[in-house]
Design a binder for these strands. Structure first.
Lengths: 236, 236
DNA sequence: CCAGAAGGATCGTCCGTCGTACCTTTGCCG
DNA sequence: CGGCAAAGGTACGACGGACGATCCTTCTGG
């Protein structure tokens, strides 16, 4: 009875993702989220393997996979290298129904976003705010959904960067990947997107005033919006 | 220049903890945090291996390690089993100086605690509050530090449980383990502990009123307290 | 035109994980 | 009292992932 939930997590499956999978995931996600931009050149294999702390063999397996899936492109010879393709494949359409555990993802997102926004309110500078604002502007015209989505991810990552907390940046990357997968399951009418962007705007305003309280409640509502849409409800 | 911090995290080392290590960590942490209480019996090896999704061989390696480190005790024969030892070894004293990245741990903690407290404000029931309150009471007399510390961990885990978010519970467990390691580096005068517990009390009060705003700011200050102590400062 | 910088390919080795089968201890129950 | 059942303890073989080392191939810049 007592401490039931916490004890249960102790005995949950301990998954052991292989280095290869981890690497594919890391690079693939970075590309799909637009963190690595089209045309960008990755460090040479030998060097990158060193940075990632893995062997070149394993890194090459990952790269080969990403080449075959159309995310990367390899060019041989001097001056060659590994490049992000010009038009990376979008996240593939929804595979199957909405997963059972989607609320868990949203709950985790609440934590990451709130943590980021509070720390950002304390630490952000003008550059950070400008960075966020530029993404807000990109989202003013919710024309192509893919473009909107990438700007959205960019915005939230910018908040995380403003928090100056590396582990939050990393967590935000993971969460945004999961959210992106969830979001692929549902429609997004322009009016919803435009409303969401209004919230982005107010959030930036709160951060500018270093008003953590307002920032938190704006962010909470913002995330709640996604939750309601996924639940098939309308806020209010 | 642009998006520097986020891109950097992409190329950071991809650590591949082995299943064995993960398991030792999972169980060892649960014991040290008091999540698995002394005398408690673990499920039979065959069953536990199944729950954890690992082979019995690997699980046994982990158990053997924990037996040798004095956390577990195995008893053969019918009615036997694997038990948590009566007096598990405390977290060993500080090994070396305070790690460089201690602020990153605190930053992550901010996120986990704030997320937990916000969701708890929305979802907690009387049982949850009672659960928290019991830990607060255990901390009223900051006599033995180890006892205080365990109650403290229990309190924060209780908040996470009240959030009804499994992944936050898991994250809280990890964070508390790291915090416990950091805290072993510094002294804690009784007055500081008693002040911290006052904050716990106010936090519960805010949750009872479902006042998320207050709960957030209390929690933020509470975590800040730890940060200041680690930094060798006094708040205020 | 060639040296050097990149990706491409192919080994053998090592080690962690798994599965399976079997042994040993010990308490309970008929 | 004797055997069955439930637990931990042991052993071993198969498999696969990760690694490191070596060499090849391609191409460009000087």
């Amino acid at each position: 009875m007592e401490r039931r939930a916490a004890v249960a997590t102790v005995f949950e499956p301990v998954q052991a993702p292989t280095t290869f999978e981890e690497t594919v995931d890391r690079l693939g996600t970075a590309i799909r989220l637009g963190l690595l931009v089209p045309g960008q050149r990755l460090p040479p294999e030998r060097e990158l393997a060193d940075q990632l702390g893995i062997s070149r063999s394993t890194l090459r397996q990952a790269i080969t996979t990403l080449v075959q899936s159309g995310h990367l492109q390899s060019i041989r010879g001097r001056g060659g290298g590994t490049f992000v393709v010009e038009r990376p494949p979008l996240a593939e359409g929804p595979s199957g129904p909405l997963p059972e555990d989607w609320r868990e993802v949203i709950d985790l997102r609440v934590a990451v976003e709130l943590g980021a926004v509070v720390l950002a309110a304390e630490r952000c500078d003008e550059d950070d705010l400008a960075h966020m604002a530029s993404f807000v502007e990109q989202m003013t015209d919710p024309g192509v959904f893919a473009a909107y989505r990438r700007a959205d991810v960019g915005f939230h990552l910018a908040v995380a960067e403003a928090s100056r907390a590396p582990r939050l940046i990393s967590a935000m990357t993971d969460v945004q990947r999961e959210i992106t997968e969830l979001i692929a399951h549902i429609a997004h009418p322009p009016q919803v997107l435009s409303h969401a962007n209004t919230e982005h705007e107010r959030l930036v305003e709160a951060l500018r005033r270093r008003d953590a309280g307002r920032a938190v409640s704006h962010m909470r509502r913002h995330v709640e919006g996604t939750e309601h849409i996924l639940a098939g409800l309308r806020p209010g």
